[in-house]
Amino acid sequence: MQKISALKLSNKRVVDSEGSEIGTLHNIVAEAGTGMLKELVVKPADELDKSRFREENGDIFIPFDAVKAIKDVIVVDSEKLRVRA
């Protein structure tokens, strides 16, 4: 099933589809009325180039649409990240 506890997701590693490490999941932003998931709030890895992300208080935001898979790690689509940048 595709239903996951949000608590269990926090601190999961986030990598892009090229295998580069992005960081660890800190939080998820949702639209209150509809419950639609909007963005991942990620604590960036030290070596990450943050220029292509929106950054706030040291966290970066990744559109939920870029998420490809959530299993042992969270994989986000590098292409979709680039489109947004």
């Binding site: 595709q2 239903k3 996951i4 949000a6 608590l7 949702a30 509809t34 419950g35 639609m36 939920f64």
Partner: peptide, 15 residues
């Protein structure tokens, strides 16, 4: 509220 259940495929909060 202790936890939030999210539906990854539907991209929404389920419960």
């Amino acid at each position: 509220i202790e936890d939030v259940s999210v539906d990854i495929r539907e991209k929404r909060v389920s419960g």
